[in-house]
């Protein structure tokens, strides 16, 4: 009985120490909600765009998210965080969208919005330009690289897009564009996201396919 208790306590000690000290976990922050990104993003204004949601593990899964942090005044950077299953699954449909924004007054907003929403409509960064009787947002020359970082491609938000986004933000609802251009199914996201979501080799290998391929290769 004493031996079993000692073995159990040793296992518990091993798991605790692994959790606290394991080199794999030391450098990764853990977030429960997008709001927890404020622990990592210290400078403002900044916006965190979800690039990837990943999981690891056979029996017990660990969930990770990759964000691209965009600042107004410095180059972007990419971070990987550990997260909860619920947040990972819930936010996977908001791929390529901004899940965390902090403005110059340090106000934080975590409603999923199209990338670049934080800087759109702010006269510090650009202005509205009239083209074919529609007002489009254009960034100043200094910030000309921002649309590339946002993954906009040829897209420029118009006034209607901006007002609709404001409306959604006030109502606390996510906004993925007038024609759902952004998000996991969005046309712009799937085309211009820097690291396009694709299924890994691990996902593509299916048990049934292995047998099919085996018979195809050997008996056809």
């Amino acid at each position: 009985m004493n031996k079993l208790l000692f073995y159990f306590l040793s296992t518990l000690l091993f798991l605790t120490l692994s959790k606290l000290l394991a080199p794999d976990n030391i450098s990764l922050e853990y977030i429960k909600t997008p709001n927890d990104l404020k622990k990592i993003i210290k400078l403002a204004p900044a916006s965190a765009i979800l690039e990837k949601t990943m999981k690891k593990g056979y029996l017990i899964k660990t969930y990770y998210q990759k964000y691209r942090i965009l600042y107004a005044y410095r180059p972007p950077r990419e971070i990987i965080v550990r997260t909860k299953r619920r947040l990972a699954e819930k936010s996977s449909k908001y791929l390529g969208m901004s899940l965390f924004r902090i403005d110059e007054d340090k106000n934080i907003n975590t409603i999923p919005m199209p990338p670049g929403y934080l800087m759109t409509g702010n006269k510090k960064y650009g202005r509205w330009v009239l083209q074919n009787q529609t007002y489009y947002w254009k960034f100043y020359q200094t910030y000309r690289r921002l649309p590339k970082y946002f993954g906009w491609g040829a897209f420029s938000p118009d006034r209607e897009f901006y007002l609709k986004a404001k409306e959604h933000e006030k109502a606390g609802k996510p906004f993925s564009g007038l024609n759902k251009e952004f998000g996991a199914e969005g046309s712009i996201t799937s085309k211009f996201l820097p690291h396009k979501q694709s299924s890994s080799l691990y996902n593509r290998i299916k048990f049934g396919n292995l047998f099919k391929n085996y018979f195809k290769t050997n008996y056809n």
């Binding site: 999981k55 690891k56 979501q197 299924s199 890994s200 691990y202 996902n203």
Partner: peptide, 9 residues
């Protein structure tokens, strides 16, 4: 070896 197998959600 159990490291390095990420699958994308």
């Amino acid at each position: 070896n159990l490291s390095g197998l990420f699958s994308i959600l």
